[in-house]
């Protein structure tokens, strides 16, 4: 699971009101190179919850994203490269996603989060 997907994912347990962002429990991270596309990043930038991305990338061992952003940063190649790396090249291979409200653990195995709920959670 990449942080693009993490940024789109909330805890889906019935009754949970603030299920975002899911906390990361990191056992294994892999990096896979992805072709750089500035258009995609420019387009995604406004849709990304920045703090969630910064925190998640730090949990994955990547600390180069700035805490604060402003739109003018999108003109900087250096910034875009970091954003690209955090969003698309880091994969949580083994670990878990933790519901911020209930502490429920959603396992991530072989890079795939399992969001299936038990009957009493739906």
């Amino acid at each position: 699971m990449r942080l693009l997907t993490h940024n789109m994912l909330s805890s889906n347990i019935k009754g949970v009101t603030s299920g975002f962002p899911l906390r990361l429990e990191v056992e294994k991270v892999v990096e896979k190179q992805v072709d750089f596309n500035a258009d995609f990043l420019n387009n995604m930038f406004v849709k990304i919850e920045w703090k969630a991305l910064v925190d998640a990338s730090r949990a994955m061992g990547y600390a180069d994203l700035p805490d604060q952003t402003e739109p003018s940063m999108l003109d900087s190649d250096e910034f875009l490269k970091k954003f690209h790396h955090a969003l698309l090249e880091l994969h949580l291979e083994e670990g878990a996603l933790i519901c911020p409200e209930t502490g429920r653990r959603f396992p991530v195995n072989k890079g795939i989060p399992n969001m299936l709920l038990h009957e009493d959670e739906v």
Partner: peptide
Amino acid sequence: RVTSETLEAHGVHADLICTDIASGLEKR
């Protein structure tokens, strides 16, 4: 899991989630 193997065998990538339809994705 099988989908991730199929994608890899073709050298392409998709993020995968095991979930009911799009549960967990609908808000964001």
